[in-house]
Structure formats: structure tokens, C-alpha cells
């Protein structure tokens, strides 16, 4: 019960305050009512912008990606199969847009080379490490990266991740295990390639 309440607070499109239920606003937005769409977008905007900012690392580009995601969401409302999944559907669209951008702009080998050349205490090194982490996330299958981002970056519990993605709890656990294993392996491999990604224990 408690988990469900927390999940509702975190999932856009579920907790609506004084506004009409999300399903009703979705119906009105599909019919072309701008105020209903505005209300839905206002609810998801900050969460999507935060996701984009974390995945892209640049405020301006994050806003650009958020606008692209929200426009895609607005234009494709008819394709949403279940209104109850509105929040996770939006989140997935934004995640896909960001990871596509990450893949398009950074090559892993180039990042590793720059990381190797940067001074150990340099701020640039920390920045490059974050770029590398983003690149590793972008290279993962999306079903893995989404559970990892929700759990590790957004700090959701397993139950909240399951609720957000509409998955059984067991599936979340197994995907999260696989995603973590993959991330650790990729990170270690990158460290061996670049001889630079040692982690202080």
C-alpha cells in the first residue's frame, strides 16, 4: 500500500492533484483540447527534463531533447495502448531520444583516449567519466538501461520500477541483475581499454 502510494507520487499521469484523472485529460487532449494537453505535459515536464539533463549533461541540449520528447508524445497520443501507462510511455520516449543523441555524439574510443590524456585530478576527468557512463548506458539494450536508470539514477524501489514500467516484480529483479552485470563488465572492459577507469574501493 505504502509502495503504491509512493509510486503514485513519482509517476507522472497518476497523481493529478486537483486536475481531472489522466485518462480523462488524455481523451480530451486526443480530441484536440490544448488545456488538457498542457496539464498533462506540465506534470511530466520536470521529470523528463531531469532525465534528459542527466543523460545529456547539458542544460540547453536537455531542454531541446525535452521539447522533442514532449512534442513526440503530444503528436502520438493515439498510439498509447494503455492510458494507465502514460507516465512510463513518456519516460521511455524521452530516454530513447536522449540515448540516441548520446550515441550520435560520442564515440567510446575517443572518450577513452581523452580520459587517458586528462590529468588525474582534473575536473575534465570527472566530466569525461560521466560522458563514458552515459555512453555505456546508451550502448545497453533499452530494457536493461531503463531499469538501471530508474533504480540507480532516480532511486526508485523495485516495486516503483515495476509499477513505472508495468512489469512484474520478478522481471524487474532479473533485468536489474542483468543490467548491473552488463554495466560492471562494460565498465571494467572500458577500464582495461583505457587503463584509466580504476574505482576506489
Amino acid at each position: 500500500m505504502e509502495a503504491a502510494r509512493l509510486a503514485d507520487e513519482q509517476i507522472p499521469g497518476r497523481a493529478c492533484g486537483g486536475a481531472a484523472p489522466a485518462a480523462e485529460r488524455l481523451r480530451r487532449a486526443r480530441a484536440g483540447e490544448g488545456s488538457a494537453l498542457r496539464s498533462l505535459l506540465d506534470e511530466i515536464r520536470d521529470r523528463i527534463l531531469t532525465l534528459c539533463f542527466r543523460l545529456l549533461g547539458d542544460r540547453h541540449e536537455a531542454e531541446d531533447a525535452t521539447q522533442e520528447a514532449m512534442l513526440r508524445i503530444s503528436l502520438h497520443l493515439d498510439e498509447l495502448s494503455s492510458d494507465a501507462q502514460f507516465g512510463s510511455w513518456c519516460w521511455r520516449i524521452a530516454q530513447r531520444i536522449c540515448l540516441d543523441r548520446v550515441r550520435a555524439r560520442t564515440r567510446r574510443a575517443e572518450l577513452l583516449a581523452r580520459y587517458r590524456e586528462a590529468n588525474r585530478d582534473d575536473e575534465e576527468r570527472a566530466l569525461l567519466l560521466r560522458l563514458l557512463v552515459r555512453r555505456l548506458l546508451a550502448d545497453m539494450p533499452s530494457d536493461m538501461s531503463e531499469v538501471l536508470i530508474l533504480r540507480e539514477m532516480e532511486g526508485l524501489s523495485y516495486m516503483q520500477v515495476a509499477d513505472t514500467l508495468g512489469l512484474p516484480l520478478g522481471t524487474v529483479k532479473s533485468r536489474l541483475n542483468a543490467a548491473r552485470r552488463r554495466f560492471r563488465d562494460d565498465y571494467s572492459k572500458a577500464g582495461q581499454e583505457g587503463e584509466a577507469c580504476s574505482v576506489k574501493e
Binding site: 490544448g34 494537453l37 498542457r38 505535459l41 506540465d42 515536464r45 520536470d46 527534463l49 531531469t50 534528459c52 539533463f53 542544460r59 536537455a62 531542454e63 525535452t66 521539447q67 514532449m70 512534442l71 503530444s74
Partner: peptide, 12 residues
């Protein structure tokens, strides 16, 4: 990160 209403307005 937090956005403002102007972003929503642009999209609408």
C-alpha cells in the same frame, strides 16, 4: 533539473 511553463507552451 526543473523547467518552466514556457517550455510546455512552446510544445502546445
Amino acid at each position: 533539473a526543473g523547467g518552466d511553463a514556457a517550455l510546455t507552451e512552446r510544445v502546445v
